[in-house]
């Protein structure tokens, strides 16, 4: 099957991805070199491939790449500051020990960023709802909840 070009704004920069109709956004991004989106199940069950697509969370294995034509994609790398500094959510994850193997982390971080956009001062329940689509097998989630609360406080301070 011949490939066709699609244009997306990837972490703020316009890029062209070469894809087949069957290419999922996950595979297209990985082929392009953005490997923070992970292949955990490729069936929408694990959340390791989560991205922000036009500001909305999506599991990129459930999006065909052609559907992203002309849209904005943000991955975990895209949260870094101009000098590579971590986003407050990423920083809070590091400080609270909310990372173990790290395979769920990029997706989990994006889900937390999205959650904090919607609920700047979230309850435990809101955190659980917002992160319910992202599996983590290592941490038991407890430290992740701590990290999201901490990130909320850090973001509040920054505002």
């Amino acid at each position: 099957m011949p490939k066709q070009p699609i244009n997306v704004v990837l972490n703020g920069k316009p890029v062209t991805l070469e894809v087949e109709p069957r290419t999922t956004l996950l595979r297209a991004l990985r082929e392009f070199g953005v490997t923070s989106v992970k292949r955990g199940c490729e069936e929408g069950e694990c959340g390791t491939c989560t991205v922000l697509l036009d500001g909305k969370l999506q599991k990129s294995c459930m999006v065909l790449a052609v559907e992203a034509e002309g849209r904005k994609v943000v991955t975990s790398e895209g949260l870094l500051g101009p000098d590579g500094e971590l986003h407050p959510v990423q920083k809070a994850f590091v400080e609270e020990g909310a990372i173990q193997c790290g395979f769920c982390t990029p997706g989990m971080v994006l889900a937390a960023v999205d959650l904090l956009n919607r609920h700047p001062d979230p309850t435990d329940e809101q955190i659980k709802e917002g992160l319910s689509g992202n599996l983590c097998r290592c941490t038991g989630y407890v430290s992740i909840i701590r990290a999201v609360h901490k990130a909320a406080a850090m973001l509040k301070e920054r505002r």
Binding site: G44, K56, L57, Q58, K59, M62, G130, L131, G133
Partner: peptide, 9 residues
């Protein structure tokens, strides 16, 4: 239904 992320799709 499913989870918060899937419900966006």
């Amino acid at each position: 239904h499913s989870d918060f992320v899937m419900r966006n799709k």
